[in-house]
Design a protein around this nucleic acid. Structure first.
Lengths: 222, 222
DNA sequence: GTTTTAATGTCGACTGGATGACATTATGAT
DNA sequence: ATCATAATGTCATCCAGTCGACATTAAAAC
């Protein structure tokens, strides 16, 4: 059923080196906002370590995680920088983060001199496009339980740690944040997670979630 | 509020000529399926005339329009071809359509020899990415009336015809299709459209919709 | 440690919108 | 014109999920 929830195109070492050489490294502490909506989108970031969440704010102030979570090795701020206007979303450091920053003109220069990089970027955006379309599809046609289950599986696959007895999601994700990703209310997430826990699809480890039975969890997806 | 619902990156004539020379032209009659989920994604299309809708099918057979509608001058089938696996969505000809077909290897060759094309493709995908993220945001945080209103405005902007007394949407869009785009039921669309009509934001012209008062319509967005 | 604050658990009232059922009206086909 | 089919209008029913309100628990801050 879920063979491959995720299809990521990753940069290879050469490509990363090119970016590192053209850019410079910066660090952000946990909780810091790396960029915000309204900022001029004139730089892209390569994540060296740490996790970053991309989200938007709706008019009523609700936070909506829209671009999911970016992990080490990934580029972020890409789409908006290529477009060149103002950013429409925020990037927040989930934990301490190190990034390579690269200014827009340098980045475009790099693509122009290294066509294979430009093609790679295009492929990467293509993959993200597919992912985004998948999310739209899910949002429209699935109910809350399925959306939450899939979101957990995706996060697990992307930034979970394989341990004995399951995949631990080592991120400080509150129910509210999950609710924002899934498009539901905090209360619904709380009770759904408890349902999953009773079913022994997941367990709590302190406040962190561990996926014990991915297949059982995947049953909710429909 | 809605200054610019749409941000499209368009190919210039030179870029289109490159594609035309490398590919070949084909025609599809109204209603025909240009590609389907499961097909191997080995070609991209440049639309010369006509409109194409991109949609997915959910497990229960419901149609979900996910990538909106593509108009003349636009590329389609891009993201999946760059990725290279199977298609996950369908492309259906809304009316008679002429397209340039370009095979994947030819397309990649073109990008490799013309870096500026590769960069353009990246920018184009970046713009679509932003759009897709916008849709996710809307799906999550708005109710049916707002989603429908915005969808009408977007379609109007993209493929509407400016006439005295409003923008005519000259597409055979049924309530069911709108429902699929908006993620709601056919009945809800029917009654919402009637509400809009009573408010004189829109009128019917036979079965086609004309947006008479975009600002009033935009009021529903929140 | 104690206090403050944030996160979670739980409940009942309320509601947007889905669903099914059916009438009506277009639109096409022959 | 006549029939068949697809699209629209309208309604009553029902339920998932929201919202507010509050208790409880965990984590930070002091």
């Amino acid at each position: 059923m879920i063979k491959n929830v995720f299809e990521t195109v990753v940069l290879d070492e050469l490509e990363k080196m090119l970016i590192r050489q053209a850019g410079s490294i910066v660090h952000y502490p946990k909780g810091h906002t790396i960029f915000a909506a309204g900022d001029f989108a004139d730089r892209v970031y390569l994540i060296e370590s740490g996790w970053v969440k991309i989200y938007r704010l709706s008019t009523d102030g609700r936070r909506v995680t829209v671009g999911s979570i970016r992990s080490p090795g990934e580029l972020m701020g890409l789409a908006e920088t290529l477009w060149g206007g103002e950013r429409t979303c925020f990037a927040g450091a989930i934990n301490n983060v190190s990034l390579v920053v690269l200014r827009k003109n340098k980045f475009e220069e790099l693509m122009a001199t290294h066509p294979f990089l430009a093609i790679k970027i295009a492929k990467l955006l293509g993959a993200r496009m597919r992912e985004a379309e998948g999310i739209i599809h899910e949002m429209v046609s699935w109910q809350a339980p399925g959306r939450l289950a899939l979101t957990l599986l995706k996060i697990g696959e992307r930034c979970g740690v394989e341990t004995k007895g399951g995949i631990r999601i080592g991120l400080p994700l509150t129910h509210e944040e999950l609710a924002n990703m899934v498009g539901t209310s905090r209360q619904t997430v709380t009770s759904l997670l408890n349902t999953f826990k009773q079913e022994k699809s997941i367990t709590y480890e302190g406040r962190e979630i561990k996926i014990v039975n991915p297949d059982k969890l995947a049953k909710w997806i429909i």
